[in-house]
């Protein structure tokens, strides 16, 4: 699984340019699930048809990044954010374009250092002149952060852990679950980081009876952080609410029951941060409403280049999802 995670995290895929991740996901899920399709937005659906309740499991393929907005006379690039880019951490980072070209984000030396405005940052791709730069890079080109994956014991650090770790969880679940009484679709969605845009059409298309989104959540186990009971290594987190969604009580209670039944270490998650949410927010309001829950992977330093998760939580999430999709969800009232 760490191999799969390494591959996924290392693939280029800021919101709107998820094709490489989509191709990889399709390759890796193909053996487990026969029917793979895409839609107008680029969402990938891996479906195992069945007679029972229609279940949607969603993980988003996109990652935060940036888009070039101007290339100046000397070849320096300016940029705009893609998703919730943290300006406090963007400076001094390396970024990579789809072409492979690497640049460094730097902050203008003059001016007010406390003024954390994106306008004060620029990218140096190492071009010797404006014309040389313009031959290769253009306004609208997209970049993601350039940082490898490190595995140390149970803890893994990488960029784009949000939400490739959930893509890995879904793929692994698809591989492990051979028989299910339900009609299960693993949906790998696009454009979550820019406002949960892909999941809404995906849920509309699938019209599920019940849905789960799988995503990372923040943790409360680092020095001087927001009070939150979620900790790395304490198991997958079952969401109660976040900044955009309240988990459907029936789905949440079922997840708790399943975890207890198999004595799986788990934790309850209340993410009290305005606007911070997952695909579940988009899914649950589609059509006449979809009972939707969320399984979270606790993650430190979300939206930085060093997102850290614990593999025991990841493994736990796979177990919990596997139990969920093998439960007869019609009998549970969905």
């Amino acid at each position: 699984m760490i191999k799969l995670l390494t591959e996924l995290c290392g693939t280029f895929g800021p919101s709107g340019e998820e094709e490489a991740v989509a191709a990889l996901v399709k390759r890796r899920v193909k053996d487990a699930v026969g029917e793979i399709t895409t839609d107008a937005m680029g969402n990938v659906y891996a479906r195992r048809p069945g007679k029972g309740a229609r279940v949607m499991l969603a993980a988003h393929m996109d990652e935060i990044g940036l888009v070039l907005s101007h290339i100046d006379a000397r070849g320096f690039a300016r940029f705009s954010n893609i998703g919730g880019l943290r300006l406090d951490m963007a400076a001094n980072q390396r970024v990579r374009l789809k072409s492979g070209r690497v640049g460094v984000i730097m902050e203008e030396e003059r001016g007010n250092k406390d003024d954390k405005k994106i306008d004060r940052l620029y990218i140096d791709f190492g071009y010797e002149s404006g014309p040389a730069a313009r031959k290769e890079i253009h306004v609208g080109d997209v970049a993601c952060f350039d940082r490898g994956l490190e595995c140390q014991g149970n803890r893994v650090i990488s960029k784009a852990m949000d939400d490739r770790v959930a893509c890995a969880v879904l793929i692994e679940t698809a591989r492990r679950v051979q028989k299910t009484p339900n009609d299960v679709t693993f949906a790998f969605t696009v454009q979550e980081e820019v406002g949960v845009r892909g999941a809404m059409p995906a849920a509309y298309t699938l019209n599920p009876d019940v849905a789960l989104s799988v995503d990372v959540t923040m943790s409360g186990d680092v020095p001087e952080c927001r009070p939150m009971e979620v900790a790395l290594g304490d198991g997958p987190a079952i969401k109660v609410k976040d900044g955009g969604h309240i988990a459907h009580p029936k789905v949440r209670d079922l997840l708790v029951r399943l975890a207890r039944k198999m004595k799986l270490k788990h934790q309850m998650e209340v993410l009290n941060l305005d606007g911070a949410t997952t695909d579940a927010a988009a899914i649950h309001r589609v059509r006449g409403g979809v009972p939707t829950g969320c399984v979270s992977i606790p993650c430190r330093y979300v939206h930085t280049v060093s997102e850290m998760v614990d593999m025991r939580d990841v493994e736990g999430a796979v177990k919990l999802l596997a139990a969920f999709v093998t439960t007869d969800l019609r009998k549970e009232g969905f």
Partner: peptide
């Protein structure tokens, strides 16, 4: 080109209504 990242238009609703 429009400068990326700024403004919004009706396309924001067109592209994600129903099945997208």
């Amino acid at each position: 080109e429009k400068r990326p990242g700024i403004g919004g238009t009706d396309a924001g609703e067109f592209h994600r209504a129903r099945s997208g």
